Computed example of a mutant assay.
Amino acid sequence: MQPRIPRQSAGEQGVRPPDGTDADARFSPELSSVVSGARRRAVRDGDRQIDTAHLLHSLLEYDPEARAVIGEGPQLARLLGYLVQRSIGYGLRWQSTVEDSGAVPVVSGVAGLSPLAAAAMEDARARAAGRGAERARGVDLLAALVADPQARAVEVLGRAAVEPRTVLARVAGHLGTSSR
């Protein structure tokens, strides 16, 4: 029987392959940890794919820069509370479904990610390249996760009273760029 979520790549296990051989070489080491954490969370939750909510949860868990953009205090606590509840009730309706709004083209070759999560990863890379950075950071992924209003990450943010446009503006301010 094939596992529902593919095994971790060498890069995600902490073993760095030679340059030019890793498709995720455009991610910072911290962002690679985020993807690994999201994969573990998806497997533990019994989900078929890593979705944008898994990525958001892992991002807030592993990346202090992304947490700072969201803000401290009750808003962050409420958001993390909703993300934790996903595996014990909230979000169970997502199990055995594919996260896909139809608004973005399907990104092929990204095994284990929902179409929206794969598109967010590509968007994070594009955002980093747009500001001249070689590797995407957590804040690039955060901006990409909130860009599609149909993303599960956006639904969770809404339930926690975190406005996605505000998150985009905070990311832009943090990076010194314009939001898109």
Score class of each variant (00 low, 15 high):
E99V: 04
P105N: 09
S114W: 02
L116Y: 00
G102P: 04
V107R: 12
R127M: 09
V107Q: 14
E122P: 00
G102W: 01
A111H: 11
S101D: 09
S114M: 04
R93Y: 04
S101G: 14
A120K: 05
S96A: 15
S108T: 14
P105F: 06
A120I: 06
S114L: 03
A111I: 01
G112S: 09
D123W: 01
L116A: 04
V98D: 00
P115D: 11
D123V: 02
V110Q: 11
T97D: 05
R93K: 06
M121C: 11
R127Q: 13
A119H: 13
D123C: 01
R93F: 09
M121H: 03
G112K: 08
V110I: 12
V98H: 01
S101C: 13
Q95Y: 05
T97G: 03
L116Q: 06
V110Y: 15
D100K: 04
A126W: 02
A126T: 12
G109E: 10
A111L: 07
S114N: 04
T97W: 03
R125A: 14
G102V: 05
G109L: 08
R127E: 05
V107P: 04
A117P: 04
V107K: 09
P105M: 11
W94S: 01
S108H: 11
A117Y: 02
D100H: 10
A117R: 02
S96K: 13
A119R: 12
T97A: 10
W94Y: 10
E99Y: 02
G102F: 01
T97C: 05
L116W: 00
A103R: 11
E99G: 05
D100T: 01
L113T: 04
G112A: 08
E122T: 15
V107S: 09
L113P: 03
V106I: 13
E99T: 00
D100L: 05
A126K: 14
